[in-house]
Amino acid sequence: MAGYILKRLISAIPVLLGISVIVFVIMAMIPGDPATAILGSYATPENVAKLNRDLGLDKPMVERYFIWLGNMLTGDFGRSFSLNRPVLDEVLDRFNATLVLAGTSFVLCAIFGVAAGVVSAARQYGLADKAITFAVLIGISIPSFFLGMMMILIFSVNLKWFPVSGMWPIYGARDIGALVSHLTLPAISLAVVATGVVARLSRSAMLEVLRQDFIRTARAKGMPGKSVVVSHMLPAALLPVVSYLGPAVANIVTGAVVVETIFQLPGMGRFFVQGALNRDYPTVLGIVVVFALAVILMNLIVDLLYGLLDPRVKAGR
């Protein structure tokens, strides 16, 4: 197990390098340099040249990349051009908010998605199945920002059940209750699409398993229906669902960018867009690397889970 984890972590290194190279090259192809973006269009050429020198932008691209890489390996992601603060501090500051939001949505989509899928497979073509299938299709088709705005309008503005925006109250205690009331709407609007996908996947996986021999055997042995579902079908049906959870992380993180904007959460999304607009490439690179690392770790966890659920995978390792 430990060997496997180590091997996977080592294989993540070329992936991270590849991503950083791609992003670095694209950011370096920017027409117009960051120095001009920082100083504004009235800057003298001397000042621009000096700032470029100070930022290390006068060196060739390859050299710049290796300098950045060397610094990054010692934990120094450079300074943000626009904020003039260490990138890593700024990123980690905002990462927490994104992590809490994305994590909550992830848990929500896994629980409700699987539950909906199981119920609708167990009652195939029944009323519950039709209702769930319909709800799922609607859920998949509603853009998260539209859902978010509608929920703000209904639940925050009209009913005043939840705060309109932000992650913490401006005055008052920053306790778990405040967090829950601030995050309920964003987490729901972020989770809906993924929940729909998970529900569809687990429904078709359950139906697939339903027809297999070992289920018939279990039923023939006289095992009660509910236990067949829980102890035989569910673990087998969870496999395709678990393998979707990896891409789901990437999707949820992407959606988080938009949801954070609507609910004005202090997350990475807005920070990233601003960074890209300001040609602030240390910030953009830092965010991408931290995000990619998080996605890779999540994929590793998902694969480990997969191994726990599927005995065949262990043998093949």
């Binding site: 991503i19 694209i26 990437a250 992407t254 960018v257």
Partner: peptide
């Protein structure tokens, strides 16, 4: 795949 795609498009 490991790169959140919207980020890539934004860049």
């Amino acid at each position: 795949y490991a790169l959140p795609l919207l980020f890539f498009i934004v860049i």
